[in-house]
Design a protein around this nucleic acid. Sequence first.
RNA 1: GCGCCUGUAGCUCAGUUGGAUAGAGCAACGGACUUCUAAUCCGUAGGUCGGGGGUUCGAAUCCCUCCAGGCGUACCA
Length: 554
Amino acid sequence: MKDTIREMVRDAVRRAHRSGRLPSPDVPEIEVEEPKLEAHGDFSSNVAMVSARVQKMAPRRIAEAILEHLDDSKGIVERSEIAGPGFLNFFLRPAAWVPVLKTILEENERFGVGNSGKGQRVQVEFVSSNPTGPLHVGHGRGAAVGDSTANLLVMCGYDVQKEYYINDSGRQIRTLGLSVFLRYRQRLGESVVFPEECYQGDYIRELAEGIFAEKGNALLDWEEEKAVLHCARIAAAAIIDGIRDDLHQFGVTFDRWFSEQSLYDDGSVDDTVQQLKRHALVYEKDGAVWFRTSGFGDEKDRVVIRSNGQTTYFASDIAYHRNKFERGLERVIDVWGADHHGYIPRMRAALEASGYRKEQFDVILVQLVNLLRGGEPVAMSTRAGEFVTLRDVIDEVGSDAARFIFLTRHHESPLDFDLELAKKKTNENPVYYVQYVHARICSIEAKAQEKGFGRVDVDEDAMARLKEAEETRLIQTLARYPEVVAAAADFMEPHRVAFYLMELASAFHAYYNKHRVLVEDRQLMRGRLCLVLAVRNVIRNGLKALGVSAPTTM
RNA sequence: GCGCCUGUAGCUCAGUUGGAUAGAGCAACGGACUUCUAAUCCGUAGGUCGGGGGUUCGAAUCCCUCCAGGCGUACCA
């Protein structure tokens, strides 16, 4: 609808120029927006103001010329006016909105789907938690943001791949193995000290128990290093299985799980370092090898190979990201915890130095989650291994509530997640507020069927009967959905969809309380059924994008 | 010290990328169930958009500066 108005305005400028009323046919970048105040119409444009320079005329006179040459052959504008410094305000006829409803009903699941992505190959990498322990609540937020962003990109016509990067190499994995091995020895009655830097959680004991169940006390006879590595391998695999299960429970699946170790095994990390050397992008200093990231916007150069010969995490990360592009991906989006933001300049530098454009790499930073219960902070200590896992949260409040609440804030703003509130079935809890709309409409549909209405056909004459203020407002809100999806994907901000759904839900509940759908007048009832079914489509599509279910009853 | 993020109603947060008189929810107060699900709605009240300067027709939004909070600044991952 917005685009239609925009085209009409552009066309009017050209016509006004042809008839001699405007000196220039040029139309600058104009805006058509939905004003906050109803008195300013359904749509308004700033075309006259931004054209003042080009046309060398006063905005209000330009506005007059444009209005005189407006070609409204479809008859959608009821009335238009010039207001304030030169705004063009358009008031639409209610019937102008009928095509929107028709589109929503006909396109059904596909309503809101666009093709701005043009099939571009994009990867969203998210969660990528180290396989040293179960996922916690913060990972859940990253999962919700990453998965929803991926969904939205798919809806906008991108060819999207979701990937989980497993940091299954390096010291932390060894530490994991050591932690398990020490618990294993304790399990067999040895009295050994369990160092603070080892992983403290109870799950380590369970993993040790698993090793014992399989191998008995055989590991005691092994060389220590071999035993630790064995424990590490078994434990990491078991933890990843657990992570996969948790994410599956959370409605998140990946196209690929990418192992960091595989980059060492197939020589990718070495190759990468060799290539950097050939291109003189690295140099040696103090026995270490440094990447000249400072030449590409980073604060300082960064080490890729330590003086002890070991590569840094940065080295394998460069290899990993180059691998992504070598696979044919045109654009890469990483979802990281906000505490890693200092890492962005060096990663960006590394990719630019490798010949990629900076538009090809984006990072979504996700701020931390404060877990509360009834307003009180839940004590969590990673060091002591006491933390509430994502699984705990899903089990307690459900996947739908958790996912939706994770998306009720901009991802860069810290989120208070209150377990009590997440379980409440009132409109303090936005999930139910939105889902309730879906359930209510399903109920109306069922009642309509009891009254002998089989299928509700798309009936334009009936829809033209929708003239109540609440109905027009609902339709206008519905019409915005595709723009919301597009903006959410463009800006990688899935919370926009969550807020939109709350707004749509609010408009529906208000309508529901004031007007009945199942009225005596069959034609009006048919029109209203079309309207609420359209609302249901959009609610369902939007919730699906966020990975939240749309229940038929509640 | 330097860098990034945040600062909007008592609380938690939006704000269509520069538009007209600043928007929700919660909390407070007052109302609405004989109806298609009250997990809902309607109304009242609540503001120096952290402070100050600048850019222009126009600023919560862009620039500068100051203040407050968070995070980051490893040959850690």
